[in-house]
């Protein structure tokens, strides 16, 4: 995922000379470094100084540039108050692209695993939150985010682990729109990010048991596709959400807010409930914490009772 990001930033930087990339000493790990190799004058490593980085980016936007902050999801949270009080409060055109989200930094352990960031960003006025599923989703969404969207935006990706989920599908990214990866009548599985692979696998397994499951890629978490969520709440009467993030305040919560307002149906939440730990792979951690297709199947079966 991060390689796709690094290469795409270089392409977008070619098209838009006002695009600047700013990072806090994680250029290599995030692949922002590719941008530096091509456009050294438009690349800033401010050092290990996340708070300064955020306000620095805000100031650059005042001077007419389009700053893109590239940082680990975890360590951008250190500057949440700067994002809140400067960037979001002044509605500045600063884009935040975060890598290493969820358990994707599997080896480094809980200090590096961001499972709270969607909740923290979603709550901010003016902030938009985008969670692509895979490299194909990044290629669809990032050009729109950087070239068409105005104002603060949080774009969340992982690291290496990226099973193909949306490759070859022909939808276009649109802010506030979700996408149907698979239609179904009995239960709707909704989520965003790499765990949609588990959502699709769960739908296949449920199908074998005679249960027809829809899978929705929400992708635009804020604003969220209220119409699509309501449509599937009405159509299936049951929703299971899955996210590589805390179930408290995250994607499931965002879906629940829509569901209770527009068409209440029973829901179940698959996601994190506590801190992570070190492991040999991200997949291992998803399995360890039960953020898997099996959990989705079990929750869906429970809703079917």
């Amino acid at each position: 995922m991060r390689d796709t990001l690094g290469r795409l930033l270089v392409e977008l930087g070619e098209r838009d000379k006002d695009l600047l990339v700013i990072t806090a000493d994680v250029g290599d790990s995030t692949r922002a470094i590719y941008f530096k190799e091509k456009y050294p004058d438009r690349y800033f490593n401010v050092g290990i100084s996340e708070q300064d980085m955020v306000n620095f980016a805000g100031g650059l936007s005042i001077a007419g540039y389009k700053p893109v902050v590239v940082e680990f999801a975890m360590f951008l949270m250190r500057a949440w108050e700067q994002i809140r009080n400067s960037i979001a409060r002044m509605n500045l055109d600063v884009k935040f692209i975060v890598t290493h989200s969820g358990y994707s930094d599997h080896a480094d352990g809980s200090s590096h695993q961001a499972l709270e960031d969607i909740a923290l960003m979603r709550v901010l006025p003016n902030m938009k939150v985008i969670v692509p599923a895979d490299p194909a989703d990044i290629r669809r969404a990032l050009p729109v985010v950087l070239e068409e969207l105005k104002g603060p935006t949080y774009f969340r990706i992982g690291r290496e682990y990226s099973p193909s989920i949306t490759e070859g599908l022909d939808y276009q990214f649109k802010l506030g729109k979700g996408f149907v990866l698979r239609d179904g009548d009995d239960v709707a599985i909704m989520g965003a990010g790499v765990v949609l692979w588990d959502a699709l696998k769960a739908a296949e397994e449920l199908n074998k048991m005679g249960i027809s499951a829809a899978v929705i890629n929400l992708l635009s978490i804020k604003p969220i596709d209220e119409q699509l969520i309501e449509y599937y709440a009405r159509k299936t009467g049951r929703i299971v959400t899955i996210e590589e993030h805390s179930i408290y305040g995250g994607i499931g919560s965002a879906v629940a807010e829509v569901v209770v307002k527009r068409y209440p149906v029973p829901m179940r939440f698959v996601g994190a409930t506590t801190f992570g730990r070190s492991a040999r792979s991200q997949r291992e951690l998803l399995d360890y914490y039960g953020i898997t297709w099996k959990s989705v199947v079990n929750q869906a079966m429970e809703l079917m009772k």
Binding site: D52, M53, N55, F56, G58, G59, L60, I62, G64, Y65
Partner: peptide, 17 residues
Amino acid sequence: GQGLSFGIGIATGIKMR
């Protein structure tokens, strides 16, 4: 504690242009 960082951003942008 936030004004100086923001000022650095503005001053940097102005100088670049």
